[in-house]
Design a binder for these strands. Structure first.
Lengths: 206, 206
DNA sequence: ATTAATATACCAACCAGTCGGTTTAATATC
DNA sequence: GATATTAAACCGACTGGTTGGTATATTAAT
């Protein structure tokens, strides 16, 4: 006997969500190209028919996963404790310290989905690249707002721009992930973020 | 008529070298997984038989390409003008400024081969990952020596270690490449390296 | 003559995507 | 309240093309 659809269970997540979760996990571990549609289906516990019912192509899934990543991370950082601070400089430093704190456990648990994908797709999959670009640069813009407030407050005559510093933090984080992957050691990443924190403190030192 | 091998030409590079050059170029552009053996053969102007005569597998080629990358880059930076300076701090700052200067032209011309590969292979191809790790961390060790001299000379009591700062520079560079790929804009990378230069100047300021 | 380098044809496994059909659930009809 | 209709979700076998790698033959160099 054959059951095309499991018995209705309100607790069970929809297949689309299961596939996006599988994509996030597998792509963070193995990259976009070497993650196959079959891998994704198996991880999500879903058939290939379901995959292509929800996404017209593997590329479209990657775009959807990147967009979901944007939503989840912006929600995650917006609700983080440091984000409540009154002093904008405390929010900026709180962000950096928070990013350091969450460097724990398995590599695929703190690594960036979109940063991982960019390397593979920037020249071959413009749609995926666009979604990844949006994710990183919008995240940086959120940070830029806090940096700009702090800059106006503490060092309005500084030579550097808030935007360039916000992007610099992202570069440090993305780069530290690469070093962590290469060495298999989280501490490598944490020490780089320490330098970033130190830099920002020096920039705002009176 | 059929020529299995072209007439000997002392000017022509050996096939092995042609394949390694092709690998460097193609992997920097499209990543390891989506670069196929056929692509490599076509780019190198060589047949598949030649490929597997020179390398036992695609993986072995990647390892060889990473090792070749180590040699070429260490040679490149050792012979760069900044490396002649007497003052170790000038060598360190010269390195950073030099890295900024060479951020020109096409992305695949200044991007890092091993940094690109790490993201894809760290969990699936330990041998490639090891070669990439060696490349990045040995390069950092060269820089670490200069940083350490400068540190002894100008700020022996500093809290940070020479090693962590050397690795931080690599993180910034790797991360800036990701931002450049995402945005398609070299300036994004250059501005991040500017911040790195500024940081090092602040660290060594009396 | 032996060996190193090269070429082409070929293979089995794999991959993204298709297809025909089943099941469930909601709505319309009686 | 029972039944017919419809749409959405789902399944897994299949397909055409691709991929890493092999087999075998040919030529160049020593």
């Amino acid at each position: 006997m054959f059951m095309a659809r499991p018995i209705s269970d309100p607790l069970k997540k929809p297949s689309r969500e299961l596939l996006l979760e599988a994509a996030t996990s597998l792509i963070r571990m193995n990259g976009y190209t070497s993650t196959t549609v079959d891998d994704l289906c198996e991880k999500a516990g879903v058939s290939k028919g379901t995959f292509f019912h929800n996404f017209s192509s593997k590329e479209e899934l990657a775009v959807a996963a990147a967009n979901r990543w944007s939503k989840m991370t912006s929600e995650f950082f917006r609700s983080a404790p440091y984000h409540q601070k009154k002093d904008p400089l405390e929010r900026v430093l709180g962000y950096v310290r928070f990013r350091k704190e969450i460097l724990k456990g398995d590599l695929a648990d703190f690594t960036c989905l979109v940063g991982t994908m960019i390397q593979e797709v920037y020249s071959t999959h413009p749609e995926i690249n666009k979604a990844c670009f949006d994710s990183v640069f919008q995240h940086a813009e959120n940070l830029e707002a806090d940096i700009n407030e702090a800059r106006k407050l503490y060092c309005p005559k500084a030579k550097w721009t808030s935007k360039s510093l916000a992007l610099h933090t992202q570069a440090v984080l993305q780069g530290s992930f690469i070093l962590a992957k290469a060495s298999g050691d989280v501490r490598t990443a944490a020490e780089s973020v320490d330098h970033l924190e130190n830099y920002i403190e020096l920039l705002f030192k009176k």
